[in-house]
């Protein structure tokens, strides 16, 4: 049964990389079921994240956000800060797709704080870029300028010319 769980996870990932997102969802749902049977929270966390990603490419952004929220909860329970940051970043982008810019800002700020704590300058730069865009969408031009300047400063430091 444990091997079945791992195999469903691998199948789900392969379907995803091939662009078969419905099949990816079906496989990752099976993987999730088996992870729950075993009480394997790391595997459960991975399945939720993979499901969220697949739902993004299916255009089902609300469903994706629910899966990313479960990923975030589990990352916190597992005390994995890097995964917690990644889940916040995914949620920020998903709420941007849903045009809920207030929520997007909320999650991008959470991502920014963790990136700063972890000394992840690339993550911090991406958070500033995303925050600048969300504030622009809301017409908060002073805030947008603040984050654009931070993004420029970090991009120069990391040598990101684009």
């Amino acid at each position: 049964r444990a091997a079945q769980g791992r195999t469903y996870g691998n199948l789900g990932n392969t379907h995803y990389l091939l662009g078969n997102f419905r099949c990816a969802v079906a496989s990752h749902e099976q993987r999730l079921l088996i992870a729950k049977e075993f009480g394997d929270r790391s595997a459960e966390r991975r399945a939720y994240c993979n499901l969220g990603n697949a739902y993004i490419f299916l255009g089902e952004f609300e469903v994706a956000s629910e899966h990313y929220k479960r990923t975030l909860q589990l990352a916190r329970q597992l005390k994995d800060r890097a995964v917690e940051a990644q889940a916040c970043y995914s949620l920020g982008n998903t709420y941007t797709l849903l045009q809920d810019y207030e929520r997007a800002i909320d999650y991008h700020l959470k991502h920014l704080i963790i990136a700063q704590d972890l000394n992840d300058r690339i993550g911090e730069g991406r958070a500033c870029w995303s925050l600048g865009n969300a504030h622009t969408a809301l017409g908060n031009h002073d805030q947008a300028m603040h984050f654009a300047e931070k993004h420029l400063e970090i991009s120069k430091e990391t040598g990101d010319r684009s």
Binding site: N10, A43, R46, C49, N53, I56, F57, T96, W129
Partner: peptide, 26 residues
């Protein structure tokens, strides 16, 4: 901003390009 425009936000586009190749490996 329309749904199509939301998809054109450059930081989101970049995230989706990266996401397309990202999987949580067993």
């Amino acid at each position: 901003m329309s749904r199509v425009k939301a998809l054109q936000v450059d930081s989101v586009q970049r995230w989706m390009e990266d996401l397309r190749h990202m999987t949580e490996v067993e």
